[in-house]
Design a binder for these strands. Structure first.
Lengths: 143, 143
DNA sequence: TTAGAATAGTTGTATATGCAACTATTCTAA
DNA sequence: TTAGAATAGTTGCATATACAACTATTCTAA
């Protein structure tokens, strides 16, 4: 006895899929146009910035940005290669790392935000009233 | 004089990003669990099914599923290798192709739908009322 | 205490994506 | 008509992602 999804939920899912793709493409494009790295880098740096100077375990970071461990491992590789973060061996748990943002990482964050935020505003903010945005958030939070 | 995005729109964008990622992951996972191909294949096959037996030009298909031409070219390669679609040289325009779904493509579509739809229902449909789904669609359509 | 399970992270390999350059054909304006 | 621009699609290369197998460490229960 499988439940069929309603027409409304299929339609909504399709819209979610399309809207996300469209917006993400625009945001990434805006960043690339300014020779800035992709959004994923921003997400990592922002989470680390919030926990600065304590840093975050790699698995904690993965949970926050919804990225699985093998991809995160390589993302951190790239960031570390660009001196934006540092891996420290974790004292409390010999298996793990603590990741901390560097000063250069903080600078990049500051450089990315205006581009990122402007793109959100242009492609998202101006199209929705603040009530609509709030309603959207509230509904999406249930998922 | 750059416009700052409101707090509401940033919050909504973040939620959109997260919700999409979470759902997509679940849907792809459900398909993989049943040894079925990824969602992108479904999207292509569905569009072609709708236009059967006329078929679609490659660029038309690209517009429908929001995929750029070089990635689409390779996606079609993979589908064609699996005999799910066929490329025909286009009579009216010697530069282009017409893509048509095959009988096997139609069969795959039929096999994927129950898995896809069940995943939507489980991870999306049951969490939102039909009013909420409709509201969500309406807002997302503006983007 | 200690063997086996569980956890944190890395790496090899296959596949998918993005970008730029390319071929072939069609359109357009002198 | 015809040279140059524009369009449709493909391909080489670099990068990103997914999956499975791996190492190293910590936890747990006899």
């Amino acid at each position: 006895m499988r439940e069929e999804p309603t027409q409304e939920s299929i339609e909504a899912w399709i819209q979610l899929h399309r809207a996300h793709r469209l917006l993400l493409e625009k945001v990434e494009h805006a960043l690339k146009n300014k020779s800035l790295p992709p959004l994923a880098w921003y997400d990592v740096l922002l989470e680390l910035h919030r926990e600065n100077p304590r840093g975050l375990r790699q698995y904690e970071l993965g949970e926050k940005i919804l990225l699985n461990k093998h991809n995160l491992s390589r993302l951190i590789d790239r960031l570390e290669k660009n001196r934006l973060v540092i891996r420290h061996r974790c004292k409390e748990d010999g298996r793990g790392n603590k990741i901390r943002i560097t000063h250069e990482g903080q600078n990049l964050l500051k450089k990315m935000w205006p581009v990122y935020s402007q793109s959100i505003q242009e492609n998202f903010g101006v199209l929705l009233s603040s009530d609509e945005s709030s309603a959207l958030s509230a509904i999406l939070k249930k998922l």
